[in-house]
Structures are given as structure tokens and as C-alpha cells.
Measured scan of single mutants.
Amino acid sequence: MPVRRGHVAPQNTFLDTIIRKFEGQSRKFIIANARVENCAVIYCNDGFCELCGYSRAEVMQRPCTCDFLHGPRTQRRAAAQIAQALLGAEERKVEIAFYRKDGSCFLCLVDVVPVKNEDGAVIMFILNFEVVMEKDMVGSPAHDTNHRGPPTSWLAPGRAKTFRLKLPALLALTARESSVRSGGAGGAGAPGAVVVDVDLTPAAPSSESLALDEVTAMDNHVAGLGPAEERRALVGPGSPPRSAPGQLPSPRAHSLNPDASGSSCSLARTRSRESCASVRRASSADDIEAMRAGVLPPPPRHASTGAMHPLRSGLLNSTSDSDLVRYRTISKIPQITLNFVDLKGDPFLASPTSDREIIAPKIKERTHNVTEKVTQVLSLGADVLPEYKLQAPRIHRWTILHYSPFKAVWDWLILLLVIYTAVFTPYSAAFLLKETEEGPPATECGYACQPLAVVDLIVDIMFIVDILINFRTTYVNANEEVVSHPGRIAVHYFKGWFLIDMVAAIPFDLLI
């Protein structure tokens, strides 16, 4: 008679799926529990143990900040960024110097990925580790590398530091407007667009060049630039800015003055950032001319202004700041037409079709709590990747769950009947059967004279019903998954307890 339990259901295979997918890609990662103190490590794979030199037993239950890997060259700011990422709910990448158990130093890129439950609360953290440099290539500990984003994938490793954006290309926007319009339909740009040429040739750093990471940081200074100062900065030398009595002219307006920039070969870094931020506020060169004239017309309804409409929906549905990093990277690809469009465009503009998908598509409701890094690593669709929660398995109709209350009560009843059979069957065979043979035949009273025979008949009927119930009862397979398919249940029961239950259900007393 089957006594099969499996009270692990309803099970959740999400954690096993993450481990299996990460292991298949030869990654070095740990999984931490966000619900406990210090976000203790609950799993670390073999790749991480080989990377740091510690065994799994030495890593388990330690804080996922990996303070046991810190050393003299470990930056405090990087460690603080990892700790801050564990307090938030967004994906974050941090470069930090770690030390192995043998004392060797290596520069590592740590990717902190939160995993949320159905309520939107962070319950786990996945920390992925990628070695960037070994100890002989690690720089000085005073050099802070965590304020910069990861290198873009479309640049060669040897040319990542030679990417320079020439400031004269930004200063000569109005001069290039006529050349853009003359391109017409034969050019790649839309009317009114501004073409910015980027020099990728390796050259020595000069005062006129600005690194790509500095251009990325310009967006942080746009908020500090007032509207009046932006307007004066875009007017140009024809209309000098008016300053109040006793007030000095704005240095932001002076930063885009061609006369002032041409007199000296070098520009201050602050002026460069502010000038680029001011130019980015204009949607095209037409807006710059309109600002000089004193009238700013409404933005025209053409394809170039609607190019950012799908980007707005993608940004609203993005799951991490990696989408913004990807957008900034692609927006700086050289030799393309940049349409400086305000994100607050007309909502009635139709979304044009684009061959290049900048932001990841909208994630469906079932995966809105899973970050983009987890979705990318697992390579699963929205119909396959579940949320991290207890999910009731989908069972067929008329199927009994093996952990249901009805099955528990039924098993206790069958257990009592088995005990009765084990006690009274030998007793009936030894004593009652002998008395029946010696006594007179009682054929007239039937079952009324033999109450134990009636009980034995009921017990046999219950055993037959138990066999039928076992054909529709779920079970737990070797992978700790609840199986509810009727065919698989029948095959599993035939290979197991079916023969024993059938022999126990045969009414031998009635056959004798």
C-alpha cells in the first residue's frame, strides 16, 4: 500500500533555474538572501570558489559584500557603492579590487542584480563577478574607477581610450546646418538635424578633445543650467548677453562664444560640459537660429522629431539603469545623424518603425519583477520565466494532490484497515475457520451469522477504491517536481505499489 509523501509542494524551481543557467555559462556568482541580516550568502558556485580561493563552506553565510576579499588596494568608495546597491532595488555595476585567499590582487567587475517577489519586494541578490585585470595590471588604489561605466561593446579594446569628441564640431553647429540641408533625401539625416562627426583615429590627448566618459557625465550638469543662461549661451556672438549692473557675465554663455574659444586653444572642462549641455537642449539648428531671432517656433511634425517616441515608452518600462547606459552608448555611435529632440514631445505622434532597438522591449506582467540581467542570462521568455513566489501546480481535472487534506485522511483510514487485516486475518484463519468446520452448517442466516465476513468484505472494497484513487494521485519525481499527468501517474504506480495493492485487495476469504 503506498505511503508516498512529498510535502515540499507547491515547489518553486526558480532558484534552481537560475543556478542551472548560470552554471551553463561558466559564470562566477553568488546568491544572497536579502531578508536576513547583512544579506548572507546562501549559494556560491564553483567558479566563484576558484576565483577567490575560498571553499564553499568558508563563503556560505558570510555577508555578500565580500568584505573578506578586501585588501589594501580595495577602494572604500567601491565598497560603499556595493553596500548601497544592496540597500536599493536597481541593478548596478561596480569595479573593485579584490584579494584572493593567497593574497593576489585582481580588479573585478561586480554586477549586483536584485530579484523581487510578486509584491515588488527584493528577496534575493545575485552578484556576478568578472575579472577585468590581474594584480600586475591593477593601478594605484588612489585612482577611482567606479565613477565610470563599463566599456562599450562596439569599441575595440585597444581603442576604448582613444575615443574623442571634438569640441569644434559642437561649436560649428550653425555652420554645418547648410551642408545638412543640402544633403536632402540623399543624406542619412532628416531636415533640421545636426550631424556630429566623431574622430576615432588614435591621437595624443589634446586640450581640444573630450573623453567619452566626460560626455556621459554632461547629463548630470544640465539641471544646474538655468533657462535664461541656456538661451544666452545659444544666442551666440551676435547678441551678447546682458548683465545687470554690478553683475558679471555668465561664464556659461561665454563658453560657447566662437570668438572667445578661437582665441585660446584650450577650454576648461567645466565650460566644455556646460556648452555641450546647452546645445543638447535645442532640438535642431533651426531652433538655434530661432533663439537668435527671439522667436522659438513649435517643433515640426516630421520623422526626426518622432524618433524618440518609442524611446520614451522603453525608458518607462525599463527595469534597470543598464538600459540608460545602453541608450547613452548607442546615442554616441560615430558617423550617424543625431536628432536633438526633447523627450517631452507630442504624445499624438505616431511611433516610426526603427531597425535598431535601443531599449529592451516591454516586459510582460509575469516578468515585471525580474531584472534585465536575470532575463538576459536565463534566456527565457515571458511565458517560461515565473515570478519568485509559491505557485500552485497546474493539475488535470479529477486529480488528487498527494499533500491535500483528503489524501491525508484517506491514508490514515487505509492504515487502520491494514492494521485490522494484519490482526484479524490470522485470527480468523486459526480459530474461526476451525469452529466453522466443526459446527453445523448455517446457510440460512447468511452474513448475519458471520459479522467478521462483512467487515472483511468492506475492507476489500476499500482497498479496491484505494487502488483507483492512487491512479489519480500526484507524486514527486526525482527532481522534486509534482507530477499531475494521468499517464505518468499510471506508469509510476504500475512500477511501484500496484502489484502489492492488488494482492492485498483480493478477497481470499470469499474465494475459499
Rank of each mutant, 00 (worst) to 15 (best):
K101N: 01
D144I: 12
L212R: 07
E23C: 06
D213M: 12
L378D: 01
A80H: 08
K28L: 04
G262V: 14
R301N: 09
T337N: 14
Q25W: 13
A293E: 08
I359L: 12
P299D: 05
A83N: 11
E274K: 04
G53E: 01
R326T: 08
S250R: 12
N38L: 05
P240M: 15
E214W: 04
R242L: 12
A80M: 14
P151Q: 13
P2K: 06
P386V: 01
E95A: 05
G294Y: 12
C265K: 14
P310F: 09
N220F: 05
G262Y: 15
T371P: 04
M133A: 13
L69I: 01
S284V: 12
I42F: 01
Y327A: 12
A78P: 05
V195A: 06
C44M: 01
P237S: 15
V215L: 08
H143C: 15
D286F: 05
P151Y: 13
A156H: 12
V279A: 14
L324D: 10
T367I: 14
G381M: 05
G189E: 06
P300R: 08
V215N: 10
K21C: 13
S275V: 07
H70W: 15
N117K: 13
G236H: 06
L248I: 15
V8I: 07
D46G: 05
G158P: 12
P258R: 11
C105T: 15
P141F: 06
F125T: 08
D346W: 05
Y99G: 01
P240K: 11
I358G: 05
S207Q: 15
G183A: 08
S322R: 09
A188E: 08
P227L: 05
K135R: 08
Q75V: 05
H254Q: 13
V132W: 04
V131C: 12
I359P: 14
A350S: 12
P334F: 01
R20H: 05
L324F: 14
A303Y: 13
Q75M: 05
M308W: 05
D102G: 05
A156I: 11
C44I: 01
I333C: 15
N38I: 01
K344W: 06
P241N: 15
E177I: 01
T353M: 07
P310W: 10
K116E: 06
L165P: 14
A253G: 09
P237M: 14
A40P: 15
I18K: 01
K28D: 05
D346K: 07
P310A: 07
A40L: 13
S55W: 01
L316E: 13
H143D: 08
S304Y: 11
D213N: 01
P299R: 08
N117R: 13
T74S: 01
I336V: 14
V196T: 01
E58K: 01
R292S: 05
N257Y: 11
F106I: 05
I359Y: 11
H221Y: 08
M124T: 09
A282I: 11
T13I: 06
L170W: 10
I363N: 03
T152P: 11
T270W: 03
I30N: 01
H254D: 12
G294H: 14
V295T: 14
C44G: 01
E357I: 07
C105A: 12
G158Y: 15
L200I: 07
A285Q: 05
P168H: 06
R27N: 06
L155N: 15
V279E: 13
R273M: 15
P297K: 03
R76A: 14
V374N: 04
D219Q: 04
D46H: 04
P10H: 10
T367H: 11
F163E: 15
S278V: 11
L173H: 15
L385Y: 07
P151G: 12
M291I: 04
P2A: 05
A203R: 14
G224W: 06
E372D: 04
R100L: 01
H7S: 14
M60V: 12
G120K: 09
V8A: 14
H254N: 07
V138T: 14
N339H: 01
V3C: 08
P205H: 05
Y54T: 01
A204D: 05
W154D: 15
L338Y: 15
A142F: 15
Y99N: 01
L200R: 12
R176M: 06
V374P: 01
G183I: 14
R176T: 06
V279K: 15
I30Q: 01
P168D: 15
S178H: 06
A282K: 14
D46S: 06
D67H: 08
S272T: 09
V110I: 06
E289G: 04
L315S: 15
K344V: 10
T74D: 01
Q376G: 08
L171S: 07
T337D: 01
L296P: 11
R242E: 07
R92V: 11
Q75P: 05
S264T: 07
Y54G: 01
R269M: 12
T145D: 15
P361S: 14
S26L: 07
Q75C: 14
T145E: 03
S284G: 11
A268K: 11
A185S: 12
P334D: 15
C39Y: 14
S207G: 12
L256T: 05
S351E: 14
L107D: 07
L200N: 05
R176N: 05
G6S: 07
F163R: 15
D213H: 15
G139H: 15
P141K: 15
G6Y: 14
V122L: 12
G294L: 12
E289V: 12
E208K: 01
P298G: 12
E23G: 06
P157C: 09
V122T: 12
L86K: 01
C276D: 14
A172T: 07
L385T: 11
T65I: 09
A160E: 15
G6L: 11
V377L: 14
S261T: 06
S313P: 11
C52T: 14
E372N: 14
E90N: 08
G314T: 09
A193Y: 01
Q11R: 14
V341C: 13
K161M: 03
D286G: 07
P114H: 06
T17E: 08
E365W: 15
S354L: 05
S179R: 11
S275G: 09
P63Y: 01
Y327R: 07
A83M: 13
T152F: 09
G139F: 12
K166I: 01
T162H: 15
D67G: 06
A382S: 04
S104V: 07
P240V: 12
V113Q: 07
L338H: 15
H221W: 10
A156F: 15
A293Q: 08
L173C: 13
L225E: 14
A303Q: 11
